[in-house]
Design a protein around this nucleic acid. Structure first.
Lengths: 345, 345
DNA sequence: TTGTAAGCGTTATCAC
DNA sequence: GTGATAACGCTTACAA
């Protein structure tokens, strides 16, 4: 049996199982060479209109779909970006993911997702995997990786940070207006006449946690006695809340760095029979979608988490397609006043 | 040549200064042929131990990472699965994604994410893209695709449905105990002495919506007058809730098919000055994580959304590695009694 | 304007 | 045991 025969046999066997048409099939059908077919389908200039038409109709009739795998191997571009977060199931990251996915989809990119499970080691492993996959870009909400480690893991892959930043690294960053939001909440409490304001700070491994606490301290209204640094969880908020409430010289208002911390504080207050806002006022950075329905409804700083992902994606698309200077984008926040601060419903 | 191309050229040039080690490099360094190197690294049997060791050390010292692209092109396996949902930012899908990602990661698979934005056409497009990418499997929470369309789009790609099912298609499905959960809630209300029970049904394009409504109707306690079919949103729940509340012969209890619908009903009740549970009782399928903190706290059916994704992933891994019969897995639900039903806090 | 041929980095099939 | 060699499906100099 000649080689040619074997090839034929094999091709037929494959065809029967994977009726996927290849570029060679299209070319044959159109009576041109593969290169011409490729050029036609990629819209290269300088082709006889008739040729192009023939190729296009051949492709259509065979339902040809080019293999991204082969294409990427050849061109060294994958049209894929890696998305790495500490925890996809968190509402914030989930929303950011949606925004990013939308924007990237428009630009023709696919999203390869990695969840680092709040674990720096996994995060590094994820980055290495993504690098091996030759992703064209990286969207990264780091749980605390250093600029050097990043550089080592992904070399020159364009990277945009969001929510949390590894100082000095990357081709851009998208962050919330943390300082402004904190200021808004603080001023509002001060407007209600509060002087002793407690602060529930979030994890200091993340930019949001750091910036919010910094802003609070910089305000001149901070008393270290009333500051509690927690993880971003309801449980932690509750524990810290109980401490705050059990202080004999209790603060008259609480600023929580996140919705979870605020919810934790509410739980603590309920446990101690402390009424909000009569006995202690509460405001929160983060406006959960059910904020209106809590008792009392929650005064909070709101923002569009989706937009964070979208903006980051936009920055990345830019960075991938042209040399750009690293830019920092701030996503705006607004104050939503409801009853927990002492305002009337 | 476009700007974009030039950027890529430059980047590639940069990369060429520190070229990624290829299998050929490893082979050369170890003084063997590429095929031998390949065999060594893939743990094939029948190699001189010394050869294997040499290859391994060469690979290590060059920090060799095989190119998944090239490998996939050759082997026709991508170690990638597509994950398609109507909306990643919904807490349920986000949690399922996390569970799936975890399980798939363990098994060595990557996750390519597609958000169909609640749009059947996009869903189809997503499936085609995924098929072109030769994903090894598909995790699909469909927004309403037919078995035929699925078959046409992804051919024989192993597919596991979760949350929502296209009847008869796929290699498995993971669904909640919808009927049991509905029964639990209903019985509980009946136990409180309610006779006229209203039902807020969710979208009938999805299995969860359908099964919950079906279970309600099958209970013999259903009065069509008190049934409202909605989309899964707070707004829809509110609208339907207002209708229910404005009925002169108002039902004395409401069973909401989802947390969103329950929240919508709470908003409606607040607007009308109707007290829960004194004037009307409320229970919900879905226990939102802040259910304890609502006023009144919400009696609900709870389940582990993460587990849904995890189980689906497990089924898929099975289906991808061997011929298996299609299986249906039900994820258990439990009743959490709090105050909205009329129980004491 | 089009075709030929050389890869991209692997793995599989043969020989030896 | 190990090494040539031929794919996998595509793009792109370089020729013609």
């Amino acid at each position: 049996m000649t080689l040619r025969d074997r090839v034929w046999q094999r091709r037929n066997r494959l065809r029967n199982r994977f009726p996927k048409a290849t570029l060679a099939d299209v070319a044959e059908r159109a009576g041109v060479s593969p290169s011409t077919a490729s050029r036609a389908l990629n819209g290269h200039a300088g082709l006889a209109p008739a040729t192009r038409a023939a190729v296009e109709s051949a492709a259509a009739s065979l339902k040809f779909q080019p293999s991204p795998l082969a294409r990427s191997l050849r061109t060294r571009r994958t049209l894929t970006v890696g998305f790495v977060v500490p925890d996809v199931s968190s509402p914030f990251y989930a929303a950011a993911l949606k925004g990013a996915q939308r924007r990237l989809g428009q630009a023709g990119y696919r999203v390869l997702l990695m969840d680092a499970s709040l674990d720096v080691e996994r995060e590094l492993a994820a980055l290495e995997t993504l690098y091996a996959h030759q992703v064209d870009g990286l969207l990264l909400a780091t749980a605390g990786i250093s600029a050097e480690a990043l550089e080592a893991a992904v070399s020159t892959t364009p990277t945009v940070f969001f929510d949390s930043v590894a100082d000095g690294a990357g081709d851009g960053a998208v962050i919330l207006e943390n300082a402004r939001g904190t200021g808004l909440l603080l001023e509002h409490l001060v407007g209600h006449g509060h002087e002793h304001i407690a602060f529930l700070a979030g994890s200091q491994r993340e930019t949001s946690g750091v910036e919010r606490l910094q802003a609070f301290r910089a305000s001149g209204r901070a008393d270290e006695r009333y500051i509690r640094v927690c993880e971003w969880s309801i449980g932690d908020g509750r524990r810290a809340g109980l401490e705050l409430l059990d202080d004999p010289q209790r603060a008259s208002a609480v600023l929580a760095s996140s919705a979870e911390l605020a919810l934790g504080f509410m739980a603590a207050a309920a446990e101690r029979g402390v009424r909000i806002p009569q006995d202690v006022a509460l405001v929160s950075f983060d406006d959960p979608y059910f904020g209106e329905l809590l008792e009392p409804s929650l005064t909070a700083v709101a923002y569009d988490a989706c937009l964070v992902g979208e903006r980051a994606a936009a920055l990345l698309v830019d960075a991938m397609s042209s040399e750009t200077d690293a830019r920092e984008v701030r996503v705006p926040v607004t104050l939503v006043t409801r009853r927990s601060c002492g305002c009337d419903g």
